[in-house]
C-alpha cells in the first residue's frame, strides 16, 4: 500500500491526461469526418473567418512588431559580444519566420480565440442552446465546431504570414532607426537569407496551431460543466491546454522539419 501509493498518485493523472488526449483525438476525427458530409454551414464559416482571422489582425500585428523590434535589439546586443552584430537582419528573419512568428501568433490565438470559442460554446451548453440545436435537427459538431476549426486552420497561417512580415518590419525599423543599419542592405540580407522551406514551415505551423487552438476551444466548450463556474473552468482549461499543445506541437514540428 505504502509502495503503491506514490505510483498510484503518479499513474492517475497520467491516465487521466491520456484519456483526455484520446477524447480530443476522437473529437478531432469526428470534426474531420464532418467535413465530408452535408450540410456545410457557409454563413457560420464566413462568420468564423471574420472572428478568427480578420479580427485577430490587430493583436497579431502589435505582438509581431514589438517582438521583431525587441529581437533586433537583443541580437545586436548579444552579437556585439563576439563581433557578430551584423547578423541582425538574418537572425530576425529566421527567428520570426521559423519560430517566434508562428508560436506567438499561435499563443495569441489561444488567448483571444480559444478563450472566446470555449466561453461561447460553454455558455450555449449551460443555457441549453446546444440541446436546442439538436432538437432543431442541427448537428452541433457541424454547426459550431467544423466552421470554427476550418476557419482556424485556414486563417492562422495567413495571420502567421502577416505576423512574420510585421515582425521583420519591427526589426527593420529598430535596426535602421536606432542601430544604424542601412535600409537597402537590411532588406537584401533578409531576402537573401530566408529560404522557401522557412516560409513553408511557418505556414504549416500556423495551420497546425490554428487547428489546435480552435479545436481545443470547441472541445472544452462542449465538455463544460454547469453554471458560471463550468464556463469559467472550460475557458481556463481550454486556453491552458491549447497553449501547451501549441508549444508541444511546435517542438515536434521543428524536430521533424529541421531536426536533421
Amino acid at each position: 500500500m505504502t509502495l503503491a501509493s506514490p505510483l498510484a498518485a503518479l499513474g492517475r493523472p497520467v491516465l487521466a491526461a491520456l484519456a483526455a488526449l484520446g477524447r480530443v483525438a476522437i473529437y478531432a476525427g469526428q470534426t474531420f469526418g464532418a467535413l465530408f458530409s452535408k450540410p456545410f454551414y457557409t454563413r457560420e464559416f464566413l462568420s468564423s473567418l471574420l472572428h478568427v482571422g480578420w479580427l485577430s489582425l490587430p493583436v497579431v500585428g502589435l505582438t509581431a512588431i514589438f517582438t521583431g523590434g525587441a529581437l533586433a535589439l537583443q541580437i545586436y546586443a548579444g552579437g556585439q559580444r563576439f563581433s557578430a552584430e551584423a547578423v541582425v537582419p538574418q537572425i530576425v528573419a529566421i527567428g520570426m519566420v521559423r519560430e517566434l512568428g508562428p508560436v506567438l501568433v499561435g499563443l495569441m490565438i489561444a488567448a483571444r480565440v480559444t478563450s472566446s470559442i470555449a466561453a461561447e460554446i460553454a455558455t450555449m451548453k449551460v443555457t441549453e442552446q446546444i440541446d436546442a440545436l439538436v432538437t432543431l435537427s442541427t448537428n452541433p459538431l457541424k454547426y459550431l465546431t467544423l466552421p470554427r476549426v476550418l476557419a482556424g486552420t485556414l486563417t492562422v497561417p495567413l495571420l502567421v504570414a502577416v505576423g512574420d512580415i510585421i515582425g521583420i518590419m519591427g526589426g527593420f525599423l529598430v535596426a535602421t532607426g536606432q542601430l544604424g543599419f542601412n535600409k537597402a542592405t537590411y532588406i537584401q540580407n533578409t531576402l537573401d537569407f530566408l529560404e522557401g522551406a522557412d516560409v513553408v514551415s511557418s505556414l504549416v505551423k500556423g495551420a497546425v496551431f490554428g487547428f489546435i487552438a480552435t479545436l481545443i476551444g470547441c472541445y472544452h466548450g462542449m465538455a463544460s460543466g454547469r453554471g458560471a463556474m463550468g464556463v469559467g473552468g472550460a475557458t481556463k482549461t481550454a486556453v491552458a491546454a491549447a497553449s501547451v499543445l501549441i508549444l508541444a506541437a511546435n517542438f515536434l514540428l521543428t524536430s521533424v522539419m529541421f531536426g536533421s
Partner: peptide, 27 residues
C-alpha cells in the same frame, strides 16, 4: 418535434426571426 426550453435557449448571435425560423432556413 418542437421544444420550448426552460430558459428559452434562444441563440444569442441570431436575430429573433432567425431564431424562430431556424428550422426553415436550413435542412
Amino acid at each position: 418535434f418542437g421544444m420550448l426550453f426552460q430558459g428559452g435557449a434562444l441563440f444569442d448571435s441570431l436575430k429573433v426571426w432567425e431564431n424562430v425560423a431556424f428550422r426553415l432556413l436550413r435542412g
